[in-house]
Amino acid sequence: MPQTPFNWACPYCGQSTTITYVNFDSGTIEFNITKSDNSDYNLSAEAISCPNPECGKTLVEATFWKNGFKETSGRKKWKAIKALNKWPLLPRSSAKPMPHFVPEEIRSNYEEACLIQNDSPKASATMSRRCLQGIVRDFWNIPASKMGNLGAEISYIRDRIDEDTFESIKAVREVGDIGAHMEKSVDTIVDVEPEEAALLIELIETLVLDWYVAKHRRANRNKQLQDTVAAKRSAKKASKVNMKQIEDQSDK
C-alpha cells in the first residue's frame, strides 16, 4: 500500500494531484484459515477521494494477496508477498476520461474494452479493434467506397501516418481479429492475455491524444492567433480614424 503523500491522476476528471492522508484510507482483512503456508491470505482495500472541488469522486480498489515469509533488513516477516487478483470497484474500469470532441461511439467502445480487459481479454481486444476502426474512419474521413475491410482502411491512410504508428495499428487489428473471427480449425485456441489487451487499450489512448487532442489544440491555438491578429487590425484601423479626426479638427 502506498505511503502518503504520493502523486496520483484522477480517473474521473483526469487531473494530476498529490494525495495526502486526508484523501486516502486503506484496510486489510486477514484470512488465517490454517497454519499451512499455502492457505494464508489477506484482502486489502484502498480508497482515494479526488481533491479537485469540481470532482470529489472516490476511487476504491481491492486486492487479494497470498501471504508468506519475506526477508526485510535481514529478518523474515510473514506478510503479503503476491497479489493473486485485483478488482477496481469505483470506477469499475481503468478507462481514462475522453474529451467530448471524440465521437460517442468511440468513447463507448473504449470504455467497454477497459471494463472487460481482465475478465475477457479476447473480447476486450475485439472492442479495441472496433474502436480503432471507428477512429480511422472518423478522423481520416475514409470515403464510403473504401469502407468495409479494416485492413484496406488502414492501408488507405498508410502514407499519411508514421511507420511506427502504422505497425502498431496493424497489431491492434491482428490481435483484435483473434476475438472477432473464429479460427478455421475449432481445435486451434489462440488466447489473448490481459497484458496484451492492455497494450491495445494504451494504443487507443495514444491515438486519441496524438490525433484528436492534438488537432483540437492546434485548432484552438490557430483561432486564438487569428482573433489576436483581427483585434490588432481593428485597433490599428480605429487608431487611424482617430488620427484623421484629430488632423481634420486641427485644420479648422
Rank of each mutant, 00 (worst) to 15 (best):
A80D: 02
S108I: 05
D37M: 12
M243K: 14
G68P: 06
S239A: 15
T206C: 07
R129D: 01
K244Q: 14
I169V: 15
S108L: 06
I157R: 04
S73M: 09
P103R: 06
N220H: 03
T17A: 03
Q245V: 10
A214E: 14
L84S: 04
K237V: 10
C10F: 09
S124N: 01
P88H: 09
N118D: 14
G68H: 12
K223F: 00
T4S: 12
K170T: 12
P5S: 07
P88L: 11
C114T: 06
T28A: 09
L150F: 04
E183M: 14
E71G: 00
I204K: 01
A9I: 11
K215A: 14
S250F: 12
N38P: 01
M147Y: 01
Y41R: 07
Q15S: 06
P11I: 08
K122M: 06
N149Q: 13
E153V: 03
T17V: 08
Q15R: 11
L84K: 09
W211L: 15
E183C: 04
G148R: 14
N149W: 01
T165N: 11
D40R: 15
S234C: 00
P121M: 02
T58C: 09
I154S: 05
P2V: 13
A47N: 03
V190P: 01
P11L: 10
N7C: 05
Q249N: 08
V192D: 05
S120R: 07
R107W: 04
K96L: 14
V172Q: 10
F101Q: 04
D191A: 15
P11D: 10
A197L: 06
N109Q: 02
L150P: 05
I135T: 10
S39N: 15
A62W: 03
L207M: 15
N141Q: 14
D119C: 09
N149S: 12
C13F: 11
E111H: 09
N220Y: 00
T17W: 01
P53I: 04
E183H: 15
E247R: 06
T28Y: 05
E112Y: 03
N32W: 10
N118S: 11
M127C: 07
Q226R: 13
K79P: 01
K70Q: 13
Y41A: 00
P121K: 00
R233C: 11
I142P: 08
V175G: 01
D210G: 05
L132F: 09
V102I: 13
A219L: 09
L225R: 14
F139V: 09
S234A: 11
V60L: 15
R221N: 10
A219S: 11
E196K: 12
K70N: 10
F31H: 08
G176S: 12
A9Y: 00
K223E: 07
R129C: 00
R218G: 00
S124E: 00
W140V: 04
D37C: 05
P103A: 09
D119L: 12
L209K: 15
G74R: 02
K236E: 15
Y156W: 15
N109I: 00
K82G: 02
P143T: 09
